[in-house]
């Protein structure tokens, strides 16, 4: 790939307006539709059973209804032979041995007993803790990034990187909310991995900007940024492609359990790549980054050496 010369920074307003709109739409979706929180966070019981033949969901639903599990949701999981049964934390019912009762109930009326594939029960206390830990992880990783980037670069870069990363997280979560996929612990892990990835991408561009600030003197900040984004463009795209390759493999072959994980990272890598090119540097520019922020103050040291 030859070095390109696309005026990314000059046309920053288009990208910023586009991203602004995307973020607003995502926030609206997230607040209206919300995320389909999995039982990891809400608490509840989830039972996956497998049959030899495709399962008749209607029969299962009526059976559960009759046995007093009216609020159970029953759906196929991956294949027609696998069934996922979800139960909310129930009013006035102890939840620890719910799974046993459910399994007894569904085996009562079907000719072939279901084979239990997995049971997950999360009590309300644990659900709250997991949600809290997840939130704290997001918070602390953001703070960690702010500090590290501010230390290695400068606070304007740091803020720019965090804004670009948060943009990726918000938009990805927006898409996830539109897809109505379940947000569980694994997906949360993917979101954090996404933060790491998106940041990694942004830092590579910033690193080049810093280098060019020192090397090139006769150009404006905007021009220098543009050069930096362009020379790193092929790397940005290459790395994204390799990551997307493994994610595609994971998405198609990794099984249902890992689906949400793969989806979040696929969209995340896409938006992360986009934001490192179109958002991160303009953000730093808007915040007022100039070469003086990074170049060691020559004048002062010169003065020091005067007799």
């Amino acid at each position: 790939m030859k070095t390109t010369n696309i005026n990314f920074i000059g046309n920053r307003n288009i990208a910023l307006i586009f991203s602004g709109l995307l973020s607003i739409i995502s926030i609206i979706t997230l607040s209206v539709q919300g995320l389909q929180m999995g039982i990891d966070f809400t608490g509840g019981t989830l039972i996956e059973v497998g049959y030899q033949k495709p399962a008749d969901l209607t029969v299962l639903r009526t059976t559960l209804d009759e046995s007093g599990f009216a609020d159970a949701t029953v759906q196929n999981f991956g294949t027609a032979k696998d069934v996922l049964i979800r139960l909310k934390l129930q009013e006035g019912v102890s939840s620890a041995d719910l799974s046993t009762k459910v399994l007894e109930a569904i085996n009562k009326h079907t000719a072939e007993p279901a084979s239990l594939r997995r049971v997950e029960f999360v009590g309300p206390q644990v659900g709250d803790d997991l949600a809290q830990d997840g939130f704290l992880a997001l918070l602390y990783s953001t703070i960690g990034i702010l500090i590290y980037v501010a230390w290695r670069f400068e606070w304007k870069f740091s803020l720019g990187a965090v804004i670009a990363t948060l943009h990726d997280v918000i938009v990805t979560l927006g898409v996830f909310s539109l897809l109505k996929m379940e947000f569980d612990l694994t997906v949360l892990a993917a979101v954090l991995a996404l933060i790491g990835y998106s940041l990694n991408d942004t830092i590579v561009v910033y690193d080049r900007i810093r280098e060019n600030f020192i090397l090139i003197r006769n150009k404006t900040t905007e021009e220098m940024m543009n050069i930096s984004v362009n020379v790193t463009l092929s790397r940005t795209i290459m790395t994204s492609l390799t990551v997307i390759l493994v994610l595609v493999s994971l998405f198609f072959l990794g099984g249902e359990v890992i689906h949400g994980f793969a989806v979040v990272l696929l969209f995340g890598v896409f938006f992360g790549t986009y934001s490192s090119i179109f958002i991160a540097s303009p953000m730093a520019l808007i915040l007022g980054v100039s070469p003086q922020d990074l170049i060691p103050d020559v004048k002062e040291s010169h003065l020091d050496n005067l007799p």
């Binding site: 790491g196 940041l199 830092i203």
Partner: peptide, 12 residues
Amino acid sequence: SHVTNLVVAVVL
């Protein structure tokens, strides 16, 4: 770039 990625992984 790797250290920033590492910071997030450690928090995770």
